[in-house]
Design a protein around this nucleic acid. Structure first.
Lengths: 107, 107
DNA sequence: TTGTGACTAAGAGTCCGTC
DNA sequence: CGACGGACTCTTAGTCACA
């Protein structure tokens, strides 16, 4: 049945998979920066009085993706942030106007 | 394989492999926004007088990753942008202070 | 000290459908 | 209209060896 019985053979290069996870970031009030971003997007979208679907269409994104961002479940890329800001008619800076701090451990 | 076959060998149209068809974005001068970001990172890093390696270490990133961003080859995520801004001791807004416009199609 | 190609795991982003 | 989930493809995160 099992075959692994002989030779040392292949031990697939132990190329470091993903050992280190970067220190997490949080907002000043201990929240998730993604959630803060979501609130900003929601607020700005409401200001334009358009639906998620409409914003998604304008920005060339998927409707469910915009939904996910507003709920703080997504971590969009630089290019997507720019695209969003553009369609929301705001300066990209507004989307990242988030006060953050280091570790979540203790302080 | 069940699947009534007779017709053209049309392979069951399995999925719609949408290869990301997002409309491209460019800076006002027709450049790549990622390159603009890279310049900003470079400038700010120089201001601190530190090496890519040093910045990478502080931000918990890999040296070659920082290198890639400065050369405009990477499209970092929101969280990476935040982490970078924090270590560069600048407001995240500075990293996205980029004037952009739509597509390169025709104008 | 930095550039670059190659690589794997994870997640970004899309599309379907349901509530 | 929007939340949410599944399944999917392509890109990014993150690392290394070597130029």
């Amino acid at each position: 049945m099992s075959k692994s019985a002989n030779g040392p053979t292949r031990q697939k290069a132990p190329r470091k998979p993903r050992p280190s996870i970067q220190p997490p970031l949080e907002t000043q009030d201990g929240g998730d920066p993604r959630a803060a971003l979501g609130e900003i997007i929601y607020t700005e979208r409401m200001r334009l009085g358009i639906s998620q679907e409409e914003l998604a269409a304008r920005a060339g994104l998927d409707r469910t993706y915009v939904s996910g961002m507003e709920r703080g479940l997504r971590n969009p890329t630089f290019l997507v942030l720019l695209r969003l800001a553009r369609e929301l008619a705001i300066d990209p800076a507004i989307l990242v106007r988030i006060e953050i701090r280091k570790a979540p451990t203790n302080l």
